[in-house]
């Protein structure tokens, strides 16, 4: 073992642990700093409970929509290419380059009462801004390409020969989709879904604007954490952060497993 590579290894470990490991550890340390009883009490905080319910609602709506959309648009772009799908292929990555604050702003411009559709929606009795639909919309926006970015390259790599073979064996399109296509992209799609879920649960800036950040009503868990922290209730904030940190650790573990499985699949392939 050369000395230079040990030095490099140590430098990297120190950097990564200081930048990433330490904050993660610190969240746990802060949340447990007042003992179990205090933690137990803080977990029963009414506002935080409502925020958790709202975040779950948003995730249950936004994630399935984006997964269906992500897989559908990937199939369309890869298997039925046209000029329109090429345009979409470019547009679909745009949300990744937009600041969450700007996402919030543009949704407000389009869907607030004074915005483009706001008045129409208001007449129909739909309230988009400062309510659940707006938060779902913002969550969908920021996580829009996370599934398709993973699935599109894989679909290209796998090719359509398996699907066409299944067709010659008498299978109908829906059967081909569920027994062939979906099976071959399963782990990659799951990886994209996990990224989507993490992004939806963790979104802050965009939701901050579209929700209006009304405590007990439109406050998601991230907003609740931010509000507690700013209102000199840092401990309560860290208890919320603890919950999200635990979710992220689960997400990380799953991402690790999924990536391992994806690599093994690729390794097994022989095309």
């Amino acid at each position: 073992m050369k000395r230079s590579s040990i030095v490099l290894r140590c430098l990297v470990l120190v950097y990564v642990m200081a930048l990433l490991g330490l904050p993660l550890f610190f969240v746990f340390q802060q949340a447990f700093s007042h003992g179990w009883a205090a933690l137990w009490a803080a977990l029963h905080d009414h506002a935080m409970g409502l925020a958790i319910v709202l975040t779950m609602k948003v995730a249950l709506l936004a994630v399935p929509l984006n997964v269906v959309f992500g897989i559908g648009v990937s199939l369309w772009i890869v298997r039925r290419p046209s000029w329109l799908s090429h345009v979409v292929d470019v547009i679909i990555d745009v949300p990744l380059a937009i600041s969450p604050i700007i996402v919030g702003l543009i949704l407000e411009l389009a869907y607030a009462q004074s915005g483009w559709f706001g008045s129409t929606f208001a007449r129909l009795g739909w309230k988009v801004m400062f309510s659940l639909p707006g938060i779902v919309l913002a969550s969908i926006f920021v996580s829009l390409p996370l599934v398709s970015r993973q699935v599109i390259p894989l679909l290209r790599e796998v090719g359509d020969h398996q699907e066409q073979t299944a067709a010659t064996l008498g299978a109908k399109p829906t059967r081909i989709f569920f027994t062939i296509t979906l099976r071959s992209i399963a782990w990659t799609a799951a990886y994209g879904v996990t990224l989507t879920l993490a992004r939806v649960i963790g979104e802050y800036g965009a939701v901050l604007i579209v929700s209006g950040n009304i405590a007990l009503v439109t406050q998601t868990l991230t907003l609740n954490i931010g509000a507690n922290f700013e209102n000199f209730n840092a401990y309560q904030g860290f208890v919320g952060a603890l919950l999200l940190a635990m979710v992220s650790v689960m997400v990380l573990v799953f991402i690790g497993v999924a990536r391992h499985r994806m690599e093994r699949k690729r390794h097994d392939s022989f095309a």
């Binding site: 090719g159 398996q162 073979t165 299944a166 010659t168 062939i180 071959s184 392939s269 095309a271």
Partner: peptide, 14 residues
């Protein structure tokens, strides 16, 4: 009612 074989055999990998 045809049988088709691709050059890469297109096995269903899973």
């Amino acid at each position: 009612h045809i049988g088709f074989c691709f050059q890469d055999y297109a096995p269903f990998r899973h």
